[in-house]
C-alpha cells in the first residue's frame, strides 16, 4: 500500500514539475511574442531613415534599433575573432600534446575561468581599460575592451569543445596518417582537425550566441544607451541586450517600451537561429561518427 502511494506521488510530482516548467516557458515566450511581434517593422529598426541610407552609413539612425544591432554584430565578430584562434590552439594542445598532471592542471584553470561570473570578467575588462589608460590616454572602456572581455568569457568554452571534438575521434582514424608516415603536426592538420570541424564549429556558434546575449560584461566595458554606429575600435557603442535592459528601467513613454519588446523579439530570434545552427552541426558530427563505424 505504501509502495503504491509513493509511486503515485512521484509520478504526479514529476508530471507537475514538467508541466509547470513547460507552461512557464510558454508563458514567457508567448508574452514576449504577443507583445513584441506586432511592433516589428522596418521603422522599428531604421526609424525615420531609409534602410538603404542606414546600411550604407550615409545617415545616422536616431530612433531605431539599427545602431544597437550593428554594435552587437561588430562586437560578436570582434570577440569571436579574437577568441577563436587562441581557443582552438589551446584546445589542440590540450587534446594532442599535454598529458597527465599538466593536462589536469590546464583543465582546472579553464574550468575555473568558465565558472567566473561574467560580471567579474566585465570588472576585469574595466580594470584593464583603466590600467591601460595610464599609458595610452585614448583608451577608455570601448568596443575593443568589450570585445576582449567577451573573448575571455568564451575562451574556456572554445577550448573545451575543441578538445572534446578532437579526443572523440576513434583510434583507427587517429592511426591512419601516422601509419603512412605523417608527423604529429601533419596528422593534426590533415586528418584530426578537419574531422573535428563540425564539433568545433558548433562550439564557435554557441560562443557567438553567448557574446550576442551577454549584458553583464558589456555594461562594465563601454556599452552606452546612445552612441550611433561606432566610429573606431576605441569608441563607445550600442548593443541589443543592453538596450533591452536599459529600456526596462529607463523607458520614458509607451513608444520606447514598444521598441524594447521589439528588441527582445529580435534578440530572441537571433539566438534561436544560432542555437539551431549549432544543434544541426552537432547532429551532423554524430552522423559522421556513426557512418564511420
Amino acid at each position: 500500500m505504501k509502495e503504491r502511494f509513493i509511486e503515485i506521488f512521484i509520478k504526479s510530482f514529476a508530471w507537475l514539475s514538467g508541466l509547470l516548467l513547460l507552461s512557464a516557458a510558454f508563458v514567457i515566450i508567448g508574452f514576449l511574442l504577443v507583445k513584441g511581434v506586432p511592433t516589428l517593422s522596418l521603422s522599428l529598426i531604421f526609424g525615420d531613415t531609409s534602410p538603404a541610407d542606414a546600411l550604407l552609413l550615409r545617415r545616422q539612425v536616431l530612433t531605431g534599433l539599427f545602431p544597437a544591432m550593428a554594435g552587437t554584430c561588430l562586437l560578436v565578430l570582434l570577440s569571436v575573432g579574437l577568441a577563436t584562434p587562441v581557443g582552438l590552439a589551446a584546445g589542440i594542445y590540450l587534446a594532442e600534446y599535454s598529458r597527465g598532471n599538466l593536462k589536469s592542471f590546464f583543465s582546472l584553470f579553464y574550468d575555473i575561468l568558465a565558472g567566473v561570473p561574467s560580471i567579474v570578467i566585465g570588472l576585469f575588462g574595466f580594470s584593464l581599460a583603466i590600467s591601460l589608460h595610464h599609458y595610452v590616454k585614448e583608451i577608455y572602456p570601448c568596443l575593443l575592451i568589450s570585445a576582449l572581455a567577451l573573448a575571455f568569457l568564451v575562451l574556456p568554452y572554445l577550448i573545451r569543445t575543441t578538445q572534446f571534438a578532437m579526443e572523440s575521434i576513434p583510434s583507427e582514424t587517429r592511426l591512419t596518417a601516422p601509419a603512412l608516415g605523417a608527423t604529429k603536426l601533419q596528422n593534426i592538420a590533415y586528418v584530426l582537425f578537419p574531422r573535428s570541424l563540425p564539433g568545433i564549429a558548433s562550439g564557435v556558434i554557441l560562443a557567438i550566441g553567448r557574446c550576442a546575449e551577454d549584458t553583464a560584461v558589456i555594461m562594465l566595458t563601454g556599452v552606452v544607451a546612445a552612441a550611433g554606429i561606432p566610429g573606431s575600435l576605441l569608441s563607445a557603442y550600442e548593443a541589443l541586450p543592453f538596450y533591452i535592459y536599459y529600456i526596462s528601467s529607463q523607458y520614458r513613454d509607451a513608444y520606447e517600451l514598444q521598441t524594447g519588446y521589439g528588441a527582445a523579439v529580435i534578440l530572441l530570434i537571433i539566438c534561436a537561429c544560432l542555437f539551431l545552427a549549432a544543434f544541426y552541426l552537432k547532429n551532423q558530427l554524430m552522423d559522421r561518427m556513426l557512418y564511420r563505424q
Binding site: E172, A179, L180, A182
Partner: peptide, 29 residues
Amino acid sequence: LRRSAGMVFQTPNPLPMSIFKNISFPLKL
C-alpha cells in the same frame, strides 16, 4: 621509418576524401 614500412589494418580506413587524394596523401605528407 613509417614510410618504409607500410601498414594496412583489419578494417579498411580510407580517409574522408576522394580516391585520388587518399592515394596521394602519403606523397603530400
